[in-house]
């Protein structure tokens, strides 16, 4: 039952590739083609999602997905455009709350606590689960204030010097410091698209979230900046968990430990990244990564 992997290169051990136990399995509709193959679950998950269904109005965008995000793990999500990667990512810090037509079912837990529980306060949740969006969205503020905004509203610093340090380290980690250090007071919206994206990354890591969701963070970046962001992901992974959506397969291969392949709202396959790219279990995954899709 257990899928054998090389235990030395995975920081987490693999448990059963089956969905969680259902008390009453008789009324379960069996959809073998929708069953996720591979290793969606890990032993000590940071976040665990079970039977997540997302609808926009009547349109179902995510069909019952179950997956874990491990500790100190970078999980890559790949898949064709419109398959629901962003939608699923936005579920993980309840950003979908802002879309009135959007309904989320199932359970998503952060450290064992259901984030969709009515008792859960969404504000601290989002401080713990940070997000970088697909399109850069800097605030109408100066570069400095863009990064300082998060620490300020959470009261992370007491002195200006501390704040300066946070701003500088965040910007350097995002690979932007050298380009903007002389014009911190200029508006963030005046930066180029790629610089804006790195500003948004700096802004997200400035509040030290425990889980960072990145939606195609490198789609507007040149190779040098991309390398810088990948370096950052590797560094952040030593303390935090990262979920990254990407269309660049090499990037997924470089930065992630596990890769999830989405297809039209289904989670088709999750597995150790090298396995998924060299030896995919599912036909759809194979077609996609060999470029036969579409």
């Amino acid at each position: 039952m257990e899928i054998a992997t090389n235990p030395t290169d995975t920081p987490f051990s693999i448990i059963m590739p089956k969905p969680i136990d259902h008390e009453n399995s008789s009324d379960q509709i069996v959809q073998p083609d929708r069953e996720t193959v591979g290793i969606p679950f890990v032993k000590h998950p940071r976040m665990s999602c079970r039977d997540v269904v997302v609808r926009y109005g009547d349109k179902q965008a995510i069909n019952s997905i179950s997956i874990d995000v491990g500790k100190n793990e970078a999980l890559a999500m790949i898949g064709p455009s419109g398959c629901g990667k962003s939608t699923f990512l936005r579920c993980l810090n309840r950003m979908n709350d802002t879309i009135p037509s959007c309904r989320v079912e199932g359970s998503i837990c952060l450290d064992g606590i259901d984030i969709y529980d009515p008792a859960t306060d969404v504000v601290p949740l989002r401080a713990r689960v940070g997000m970088v969006f697909q399109k850069p969205n800097p605030f109408p503020k100066s570069i400095y204030d863009n990064v300082a905004y998060g620490p300020q509203i959470h009261g992370l610093t007491s002195t200006k010097a501390e704040l300066d340090t946070i701003v500088e380290t965040s910007l350097s980690k995002a690979g932007l410091w050298d380009e903007v250090k002389d014009r911190l007071q200029e508006p963030g919206t005046g930066l180029s698209g790629g610089q804006q994206q790195r500003l948004c990354i700096a802004r997200a890591i400035a509040v030290s979230p425990e889980v960072i969701l990145m939606d195609e963070p490198c789609s507007a970046l040149d190779p040098i900046a991309t390398a810088k962001v990948e370096e950052l992901i590797a560094e952040l992974r030593t303390q935090y968990s990262i979920v990254i959506v990407t269309h660049a397969m090499q990037q997924a291969a470089r930065v992630s430990q596990r890769t999830a392949y989405f297809h039209l709202g289904d989670l088709v396959e999750v597995g150790a990244t090298d396995k998924v790219f060299t030896n995919p279990l599912h036909k759809l995954t194979e077609d996609y990564i060999t470029g036969r899709f579409g």
Partner: peptide, 18 residues
């Protein structure tokens, strides 16, 4: 004001009022 702007702030853990 574009929704992405609100999302950016909310995703940092800001309250609606902030």
């Amino acid at each position: 004001v574009p929704q992405t702007m609100r999302d950016g702030s909310l995703a940092l853990g800001a309250t609606h009022f902030e």
